[in-house]
């Protein structure tokens, strides 16, 4: 992939994202028009309190999840894993559940911290196990992760059921941006910082995808990079689950699609993956708002359909050679 073509790709993606951003500001139960914005304060308030925070939240989440998936695929050397198919998101859910249980008044920040810790533990266990599955059967790893996630989900459901927290659990287990308001989404900016952090170590991540031996041979502290990667994945997943709930497939399909178009030199592709993740999620969120206007379909449901379809296309279509 030449540098010029690469830059055109980034530019195009950014333009699409900007367009969707504007559309997202305009779509919702309350009307926002340019005319109204010029004259009244009510519409400005709507924009500032609800529409803008929501749109920013979607962008941050989409970018963060796509990068989390990208990192996970690099460090597991398996193209078909991502946080929601590796037990990460479900471990985070368990963490929030436990905190809510022990300390109902805990702040959002503290919940995120707890969720990050459990996400880290759950993902580390998955990686240790998945590592021992035969590399000749790459499909076993995501399968193992999906079922592992559903087992963790069953544990969470069981706890929630016993303690009458089922309603809370359903909030976390299905991603939804309709509740995002100013003052309640800002934690997501952590994800943005982590995306930048990932970009700074992009070369190392590319090398890690070549394998442990190649990484050590090139002088990379493999164990520390593994920990760093795990940390980024866990925190992004935890923040997402705490603020909006589980959003499946973004981390899976976006890195794969970008890889098919632009290859796997992450320093070049990582920004594109982040922007594309934001585009996909924003498009799905807008779609969810339009399908049954003025009611909303949660983005988790829309992504479940769009993401699953894209994923099936990805695994059925043999690699384009050339």
């Amino acid at each position: 992939m030449s540098i010029a073509a690469n830059q055109i790709g980034v530019l195009l993606a950014t333009l699409v994202l900007a367009a969707l951003f504007l559309v997202s500001l305009g779509v919702g139960a309350g009307d926002v028009t340019l005319f109204g914005l010029w004259h009244g304060t009510a519409e400005l308030d709507l924009l500032a309190i609800s529409r803008l925070p929501r749109t920013v939240a979607v962008v941050l989440t989409g970018a963060g999840l796509a990068i989390a998936g990208l990192i996970m695929q690099a460090i597991t050397r398996n193209r078909f894993v991502e946080p929601s198919t590796a037990g990460t998101a479900q471990s985070a859910e368990l963490g929030i559940l436990i905190v809510t249980l022990l300390w109902p008044a805990a702040s959002l920040g503290f919940k995120t911290l707890a969720a990050s810790v459990t996400a880290l533990l759950g993902t580390a266990f998955f990686l240790m196990t998945a590592h021992r599955l035969p590399p000749t059967q790459p499909f076993l790893v995501p399968l193992f992760g999906l079922v592992y996630g559903s087992v963790l989900g069953a544990v969470a459901t069981l706890i929630a059921w016993q303690l009458d927290l089922l309603q809370y659990l359903s909030i976390w287990s299905s991603g939804d941006f309709s509740g995002v308001l100013r003052g309640r989404y800002e934690l997501l900016w952590i994800g943005a910082f982590l995306v930048v952090a990932a970009w700074l170590v992009a070369d190392r991540l590319t090398i890690m995808a070549l394998g442990r031996d190649a990484s050590i041979g090139l002088g990379i502290d493999y164990a520390r990079m593994m920990q760093l990667g795990l940390g980024i994945i866990s925190v992004i997943s935890a923040v997402t689950v705490v603020v909006v709930g589980v959003v499946p497939f973004v981390g899976l399909v976006v890195p794969n699609l970008v890889s098919r178009l632009m290859g796997d030199n992450l320093r070049a592709t990582l920004p594109v993956v982040a922007v594309s993740g934001a585009i996909l999620l924003l498009a799905c969120d807008i779609l969810g708002r339009l399908i049954r206007f003025p009611y909303e379909i949660p983005v988790g449901t829309v992504m479940g359909i769009v993401g699953a379809l894209l994923f099936l296309v990805l695994i059925f279509q043999p690699r384009v050679r050339g």
Partner: peptide, 12 residues
């Protein structure tokens, strides 16, 4: 050396 990454020869 199983390389699954989509890199060009020059990149690798």
């Amino acid at each position: 050396n199983h390389v699954g990454s989509r890199l060009t020869v020059r990149e690798l």
